[in-house]
């Protein structure tokens, strides 16, 4: 059995800001038997264009099929396959915890956003694994509420 990680492609996709773009991108992924493991969408540095960061499990298909299938879409301007490259990859988590549990989280680098009677809201960002560890820590301490983003990835300049 190959490790599940090996089947994940990390793609940075520059797309036109059109009403159907997200449907087309997600449709192409679903139709080819791929599976989205993480996604984040936001404006790019170019006006009228958005950047989608995708973590996609390519399933039984050849690894480069994800990029190729996305490149076929007219809405897609550019696809960069960042899998295995040296990258900055960040995910963001916002969580509400009981005030008494705060210390351990602050030690990991969490930042307090607000404090209220029903708990303290903190944010934390980091690599996928770091965010995963942070979630484990939260689970041990009891989470009131949590929201987590998809990845945002950029290639490191050498």
């Amino acid at each position: 059995m190959p490790e599940i990680k090996e089947k994940i492609r990390v793609l940075s996709v520059l797309v036109e800001d059109a009403p159907n773009t997200l449907t087309k991108v997600s449709g192409a992924i679903r139709r080819r038997g791929f599976h989205v493991r993480g996604i984040s969408v936001g404006p790019s540095s170019q006006p009228g264009r958005f950047r989608i960061t995708l973590q996609v499990d390519h399933g039984h298909a050849e690894a480069d099929q994800v990029r190729k299938q996305l490149e076929r879409l007219v809405e897609v301007v550019e696809v960069e396959d960042l899998t295995g490259d040296h990258v900055h990859s960040r995910e963001l988590i916002v969580a509400k915890v009981a005030a008494s549990e705060l210390d351990a989280l602050l030690k990991r680098g969490a930042k307090v956003l607000s404090t209220a009677a029903d708990g303290t809201t903190v944010e934390f960002s980091g690599e996928r694994e770091e965010v995963g560890d942070f979630v484990d820590e939260l689970t041990r301490h009891g989470i009131v509420d949590v929201a987590r983003s998809g990845p945002v990835v950029m290639r490191r300049t050498q």
């Binding site: 298909a61 050849e62 480069d64 099929q65 190729k68 299938q69 490149e71 076929r72």
Partner: peptide, 11 residues
């Protein structure tokens, strides 16, 4: 002419 056909079924 369609690059996505390369290796889709036969490499």
């Amino acid at each position: 002419i369609d690059g996505s056909e390369m290796g889709k079924n036969v490499r």
